[in-house]
């Protein structure tokens, strides 16, 4: 019961906005077979906040955000988004929730049989159910311009570089103006210059659209640019939390290993 109280209170004070909690995870556990991937995940994401999750690969970072959007169900614990438990939602509620959440996949996950334009139109026509062609066209061009890829509008994903694909993927999730963004390794596999551009893009999006974000990464430059707060994840648990500067001074070995690269 204590858990429920904790997240109802900030919701009541929604007018205060700044401290409103949009994602509340409490003791989330998840196992695949015998393999315990998430052991005890507890965190709050506040409105307008960028939370960076640092961690080596295979620690359960992606699994965590897949639980947030209901792609996976936690075995134990509660995961509330906008004050509602994701695991208890029916299909319709889940759909409504997903409209408010943008999810950038590690690979970009562009629909490879569609052009960039069709990729961006897809959420507009299928999810928001827009029908006005000129409005759709305008929106697509505006968002694509925002990520600097207006030239590529009629290309197929297979003709784009890794960085361009990520940016189109970003544009496709941002086009519906989500309130929460989940970025899965937005800069992995990109050259330093493109990485920096993407990181700055993420920061701009936060400022422009006031989104709250979880950013999964092991790129320290990206963490430095985007993070309001950083948590370090290891073997299914959060082992440290703080701002970039605070963690820099940490004497935990695993935390140090990220900063000493």
């Amino acid at each position: 019961m204590a858990v429920a109280k904790e997240h109802i209170e900030p919701k009541k004070k929604a007018s205060a906005q700044k401290d409103e909690v949009v994602i509340h995870a409490q003791g989330v556990k998840k196992a695949f077979g015998d393999k315990k991937v998430l052991k005890n995940i507890t965190f709050d994401l506040k409105r307008g906040e960028n939370m960076v999750v640092l961690g080596k690969s295979g620690q359960g970072k992606s699994v965590t955000i897949q639980c947030v959007v209901g792609l996976l169900k936690p075995d134990e614990g509660t995961l509330d988004v906008f004050g509602e438990n994701v695991a208890e939602m029916n299909d319709d509620e889940l759909k409504q929730l997903r409209i408010k959440i943008g999810f950038l996949f590690q690979s970009g996950a562009l629909y490879d049989s569609m052009t960039v334009r069709e990729n961006l139109e897809f959420p507009l026509t299928r999810v928001l159910k827009l029908t006005d062609q000129s409005e759709i066209g305008k929106k697509v061009e505006e968002v694509l311009d925002g990520v600097g890829l207006l030239d590529a509008i009629d290309k197929l994903p297979s003709d784009l570089s890794g960085g361009m694909r990520k940016r189109v993927g970003l544009a496709r999730t941002l086009i519906v103006n989500p309130e929460i963004m989940l970025y899965d390794e937005p800069t992995t596999g990109l050259d330093p210059i493109t990485s920096r551009e993407i990181s700055e893009l993420i920061l701009n999006m936060q400022k422009k659209y006031k989104t709250s974000s979880i950013i999964i990464t092991h790129d320290m430059e990206c963490a430095r640019i985007t993070a309001d707060r950083i948590v370090v994840m290891n073997e299914g648990e959060y082992i440290a939390e703080g701002t970039f500067k605070e963690l820099q001074k940490s004497d935990n070995e695993i935390v140090r290993s990220f900063f000493n690269e």
């Binding site: 996950a109 629909y111 897809f122 959420p123 999810v127 496709r172």
Partner: peptide
């Protein structure tokens, strides 16, 4: 291959209906 490259997940997570499409 759409499943492997997470395109189906992406469709589902966006709130669209991959089964229908």
């Amino acid at each position: 291959s759409m499943k492997v490259t997470e395109q189906i997940d992406a469709m589902e997570v966006s709130g669209a209906n991959p089964l229908q499409y």
